[in-house]
């Protein structure tokens, strides 16, 4: 996960509290999305960024997960996301993100 994004998430979590923060991912690939979820929950597994060894335990979902999709105005979702929903391996992405969330998220 981008080091600058790690820094920004850490700063926001410090300022507003991890319990008040939710990360919504838009990654196009399962492994990368899982890695991002792992980073904001259990810390940076590559030990390269500001979240190395920092277990924020944030709530983290992918925008393609049903829990998030239900929150959207269907028209907006259709306009913004539906094309990618057709293209991406949704099941693999959801499975990967869910695995890390269930393992490491404190605020689900």
């Amino acid at each position: 996960m981008d080091l600058e994004n790690q820094k920004r998430i850490k700063e926001i979590a410090d300022e507003y509290g991890a319990e008040n923060l939710m990360v919504i991912l838009g990654g196009a690939e399962a492994e990368a999305s899982g890695l991002a979820c792992e980073t904001v929950t259990n810390g940076d597994p590559t030990f390269a960024g500001p979240l190395a060894g920092v277990q924020l335990g944030l709530a983290c979902y992918h925008v393609l997960e049903s829990e998030i999709k239900e929150e959207f105005d269907p028209e907006v979702y259709d306009e913004q996301i539906s094309m990618m929903e057709m293209v991406l391996d949704v099941d693999a992405i959801v499975e990967e993100v869910k695995t890390y969330r269930e393992k490491y998220s404190e605020y689900k």
């Binding site: 196009a28 690939e29 492994e31 990368a32 890695l35 094309m83 990618m84 057709m86 293209v87």
Partner: peptide
């Protein structure tokens, strides 16, 4: 590196738009 097959994703996006 976890970035997937970039050209293929682009082609799929063009095709998906075509389907829509």
């Amino acid at each position: 590196a976890g970035a997937g097959n970039v050209p293929e994703s682009n082609y799929k996006m063009i095709a998906a738009l075509g389907v829509k």
